[in-house]
Design a protein around this nucleic acid. Structure first.
Length: 98
DNA sequence: TCATTGGCTATCA
DNA sequence: CTGATAGCCAATG
């Protein structure tokens, strides 16, 4: 029931622990929606302090985009402890319910 | 392996 | 319909 995909996306995003990153595709897969929708929802709803949107990246491990700027995103991730090499996430991505 | 291109997808102006 | 966007995938060179 995708009555409120937005809430679901935020809910999942909040499940991402610090020092980890999830991919849009993962969120999209869990909610049975398309990656575009997940990305769009996150981009359209900047809930800083509540939703760690900066912990969501591409399925390939690339950073992707950020409403405040990709640079900010990278800085935040590195601050959290995420290793970024050549603009890509070093290591595996976080997974939901699994 | 990497970069580019084209197609797919959903939403909005 | 066209163009744009916080994406993804397959094919090509």
């Amino acid at each position: 029931m995708n009555k409120n995909n937005q809430e679901s996306v935020f809910s999942l995003a909040r499940q991402i622990p610090a020092g980890r990153v999830a991919s849009y595709k993962e969120i999209a897969a869990v909610l049975k929606i398309h990656p575009r929708q997940a990305a769009r929802i996150l981009s359209k709803n900047i809930n800083h302090g509540k939703i760690p949107c900066h912990r969501v990246v591409h399925a390939d491990g690339r950073i992707g985009g950020y409403n405040l700027g990709v640079k900010k995103k990278i800085l935040l991730l590195e601050k959290e402890g995420v290793k970024i090499i050549n603009g890509k996430i070093a290591g595996e991505l976080f997974k939901f319910a699994g």
